[in-house]
Amino acid sequence: MSGGASKEGQGLLLAFASAAALGTNIVSAQIAGAAGLGGALLVFYRVLIMLVLVGAAALAAAAPLGLLRSERRPVALFGLATALVGTAYLSSVSFVPVSVAAVIFYTYPVLIVLAEPLLTPAPFRADRLAVALVAFLGIALVVGPDLHGLDPRGLCLAALASLAATAQFFAAAACAPIATMPKLFWSHVVILPVALAIVALTGGFLPPQAFLLAPIAVAVTYGGYLVGFVLQILALARIAPGPAGLAFCAEPIVAVAIAAVLLGERLGALQYAGGALVIAALVANVILEQTRRRPVPA
């Protein structure tokens, strides 16, 4: 296997692992929210924890955190897009059901596939678009959107989150040559004031002691985010936005499966069928990427 193929294979594996970690994070955040710990509060503290951990790791390893002038813009764009994803998605569920917000949000893999030929040298691939559409249909069946209470504000915010996630993947790809620690640190420096503003606007600030209300859920939430975000950055440094976005369709499937096991949520036939569609799309994505990388016989 060539070095490029090996790198892309690693990227797919890292993307799947990131999706699994972030899927775990969703369920534990729901449990923490039921204990009175709002999403905005969790976002603020997880960003703060990431900054402290990355800063401490850089200090212990004597790793530089500085950015070249040419690196500042892509990192700032990545941080801004990441902040918008969390802000818009978190705010959307105040106006529409979570299921509706999730279905709108997970249009972003389709948007990535459509935008990739416009923003990168990659050609348009109809097979990848077909896989993305199948995955989206599967997610819609799994989440099972509740079509009641469709406030336009929530729909617009969920759509903004989808657009921001699309931008996040391309911004992360542009940051691929930058070392991981500076990328993590400075992107979260950008995210922190946005998260703090949300907490201030919602009036949901609580001291860290409040996490004792649901310590295990909080620990899993932060662990899932920290691991998932780091793996996402590592994945997007190795693989193009198109296949990476499709790999992240696994995230809601993992979340629903964990919710069924831990929270006792019952799954219907349509949800099982949707899960099968997403899994089929993920397998097809891997096969298509391997076929594309396979050298043509002379």
Results as ranks from 00 to 15, higher is better:
Arg292Phe: 07
Leu213Tyr: 03
Leu155Gln: 04
Phe229Ile: 14
Ala179Pro: 05
Thr180Lys: 01
Gly144Lys: 05
Leu277His: 08
Ala179Cys: 07
Phe136Lys: 06
Leu163Tyr: 00
Asn285Leu: 07
Val43Pro: 00
Ala21Lys: 08
Met181Asp: 11
Ala269Pro: 00
Ala247Val: 04
Gln30Ala: 14
Ser2Arg: 11
Thr107His: 14
Ala62Phe: 01
Gly55Asp: 04
Cys249Arg: 00
Val96Gln: 13
Gly274Phe: 08
Val54Asp: 04
Phe95Pro: 10
Gln209Tyr: 00
Phe170Met: 13
Ala60Thr: 01
Leu14Val: 06
Arg128Leu: 10
Val110Phe: 13
Gly274Asn: 08
Leu59Gln: 14
Leu201Phe: 11
Ala57Glu: 05
Pro241Thr: 08
Pro152Thr: 06
Phe170Tyr: 07
Ala34His: 13
Thr291Tyr: 06
Phe16Tyr: 13
Pro74Ser: 00
Cys156Leu: 14
Phe124His: 12
Glu289Ala: 08
Thr87Trp: 15
Ala29Tyr: 00
Ile258Asp: 06
Arg73His: 01
Pro208Leu: 13
Gly245Asn: 07
Thr120Asn: 02
Val134Arg: 12
Val278Asp: 05
Met1Ala: 12
Leu192His: 04
Ala172Gln: 11
Leu53His: 02
Phe136Met: 09
Ala35His: 09
Val75Thr: 03
Ala214Asp: 10
Pro207Ser: 12
Glu251Asn: 02
Val96Thr: 11
Leu270Glu: 12
Leu282Gly: 06
Cys249Asn: 15
Trp186Ser: 09
Ala135Cys: 11
Gly3Lys: 10
Ala255Trp: 04
Gly154Glu: 10
Val218Ile: 15
Ala214Trp: 08
Ala235Ser: 15
Pro117Gly: 08
Ser28Gly: 01
Ser162Gly: 12
Phe169Val: 07
Val199Gly: 11
Arg46Thr: 05
Ala179Lys: 13
Ala158Cys: 11
Ala61Lys: 15
Ala81Pro: 07
Ile112Gln: 04
Cys249Tyr: 09
Arg125Glu: 08
Ala260Cys: 10
Ile239Ser: 05
Gly223Lys: 09
Phe95Thr: 05
Gly144Val: 03
Ala200Trp: 09
Glu116Asp: 10
Gly275His: 09
Gln271Asp: 03
Pro109Val: 04
Val278His: 14
Ala174Thr: 04
Ala247Met: 12
Ser28Tyr: 07
Tyr45Val: 06
Leu212Ser: 14
Ala269Leu: 15
Phe229Leu: 15
Ile279Trp: 04
Gln271Ser: 10
Pro97Asn: 05
Val142Lys: 01
Tyr45Thr: 02
